[in-house]
Design a protein around this nucleic acid. Structure first.
Lengths: 338, 338
DNA sequence: TTGTACGCGTTATCAC
DNA sequence: GTGATAACGCGTACAA
């Protein structure tokens, strides 16, 4: 096994020098630097995480977690994943600052970020895809703060890593699933969250792309509920009353419960095939009532866990993520394999 | 943060004594033992894995991996998972001895185990569920070897942990899925591996249990292929020729490719709904050809990774698994979300 | 029965 | 620029 000490001995220098070279701390003569670097490469030096972790304790690394989790049960599992990982890493001196907000308001998110800026070494964030936030993320990174976006990503930022699902594929999978369940064709009503949310748009695009290959499937109407259950209830009710020919409903984002209640209030649960996303408690309830046939599941728990793990490996072990995107598979869940 | 040193100071004893108490090495006066134990509990002492890992290096822990992977592509992903984890842990001095065998022959497995017995500190095994093997597993554990069964478990052994799927639930999920795809009902032909394999029997039981609730679904025939593609091809062909009424095929274990080739040779791929297990390359090929509609997936990669992780945490960090069974979910995979 | 001292690999802090 | 040294937390061999 190759250690700093071994490299130092072989190069005829001290451990300190090798450390300076490997961690780019400067104050090393270029030729010794070269020598050490070559030796390290030749021997295939890999720093020992245990050693790093042990000495990292003194740094007391802090990670901020900022999620739009208030009133959004989807994030419960993400939080559970983050929390479990954080507990595991507590022993290494890792501290977590939790911040949550409601909805996707740019200025609220910006304010919380500003507040966190001088308090954390890393940030796990479910970001609003807005120029203001993107700029702020870049500033975090420039300040030396390690940023991981979770569940949603933003366009072209300096964030080190994204952990989440492939939204387009989620929509495609939902489309294919629908065709598998109703091979004879369907008139589809779509309830989406907001066309301002990138992920929702992508899911819809994936769904449309897949469904458009089959002439027996037609999208009759698309309504936005802004992820709100009451709005979802109203919009769904109106949609179903207006388009009696609808025999399938695709719920793209939140507001699943509201939409299902609308279906129940019209007593249409036996005439409709409903597909939705995520296994929040109210959705499971509706699956048990056989209102929802199937959902697409994006491993929220693992998203949270993975995000925290990536932060830990960077902060404590000094290991940068191997991929800039960690994508969770879209799974199909029915009542039996929840 | 609470360390051994801190406990020692607070109790007015030395670090050595605290270590003796915590690791039950004896040679401690009962009253000091009590004192230390109380203090540790009160402060919520958790040993630091980094420290443990660092000192564990001197032990050079070795883990044996014994899988029936020869000629069984399912295990490719399990192996990938084990390998990746093992590489990650290499730096801690963890070494792996790989052994693979073909099929489920008791005496071959026993012989390899005997050979490994004095070479390893832990064993990851895909065991044959046979008294001889169970006894051998127990002997391993008695010798102080940490045993994790993967993918298959055995009845009532001393093995510390099982990592795998819930086979009964896998069958149930398959049954429910079939009913979702063909709501009008089906005459089902079943191709199973071997009734001697517990997992296969359990899958069948789960499937039958689920399907039996619906009078529109009937099992017409059940054939065993012994996980062999040629046998699978023949049996499937005969079954489909004999029972023209069959419109759905449930393939319980391996031999998926053989069964599908039989379907293709009879040009029945458009008249049959086929459900199978696992996403081995030949199965994916058949999904792309639209011969297989959907498969149940049991996270083979994660099974491997998890098994190795559990071994690592025990051997290097001294942490025993929190659960004696680590069950992976049965996922539904169609072409789109593979 | 108990205490001491060292090593594991890395990093930070001195002193030169 | 560089080298020596002291942590970090744990396990263990050895001394008392």
């Amino acid at each position: 096994m190759v250690t700093i000490k071994k490299i130092a001995d072989l190069c005829g220098v001290s451990r300190g020098t090798v450390d300076r070279v490997i961690n780019d701390r400067g104050n090393v003569k270029p030729e010794t630097r070269e020598l050490v670097l070559n030796m390290a490469k030749q021997l295939g030096y890999k720093p020992n995480p245990a050693g790093k972790a042990l000495s990292a304790r003194k740094k007391h690394p802090v990670v901020g977690v900022l999620l739009s989790s208030e009133g959004n049960p989807f994030f419960e599992d993400v939080i559970r994943g983050i929390k479990l990982a954080a507990e595991k890493y507590e022993i290494y001196g890792l501290k977590v600052i939790w911040r949550n907000m409601r909805g996707y308001d740019v200025s609220s998110q910006y304010e919380i970020m500003e507040d966190l800026k001088d308090k954390v070494n890393a940030l796990i964030i479910n970001p609003v895809n807005d120029p203001v936030i993107i700029k702020e993320i870049d500033e975090f990174v420039d300040t030396g703060i390690f940023v991981v976006t979770v569940n949603n990503d933003v366009d072209n930022s300096k964030r080190q890593c994204y952990v989440g699902s492939d939204y387009i594929n989620g929509g495609e999978t939902a489309g294919a699933l629908l065709q598998m369940i109703i091979p004879s064709g369907a008139n589809i009503g779509i309830i989406m969250g907001s066309s301002k949310v990138l992920g929702h748009k992508q899911r819809l695009a994936g769904f449309e792309k897949n469904i458009s290959k089959n002439p027996k499937f037609k999208i009759v109407d698309i309504q936005e509920n802004d992820d709100d259950d009451i709005s979802s209830y109203d919009k769904t009710k109106i949609m179903l009353e207006k388009h009696k020919e609808i025999n399938a409903v695709f719920i793209v984002a939140a507001g699943v419960y509201g939409a299902c209640r609308a279906v129940l209030s019209l007593d249409k649960q036996n005439d409709l095939t409903i597909i939705a996303f995520d296994t929040v408690p109210t959705t499971i309830e509706m699956m048990k009532k056989h209102v929802i046939k199937a959902v697409i599941y994006q491993h929220p728990y693992r998203q949270g866990q993975r995000a925290m793990q990536i932060v830990f490996e960077y902060l404590v072990n000094g290991i940068s993520p191997d991929k800039s995107k960690h994508i969770m598979k879209n799974e199909i869940k029915i009542l039996e394999n929840l």
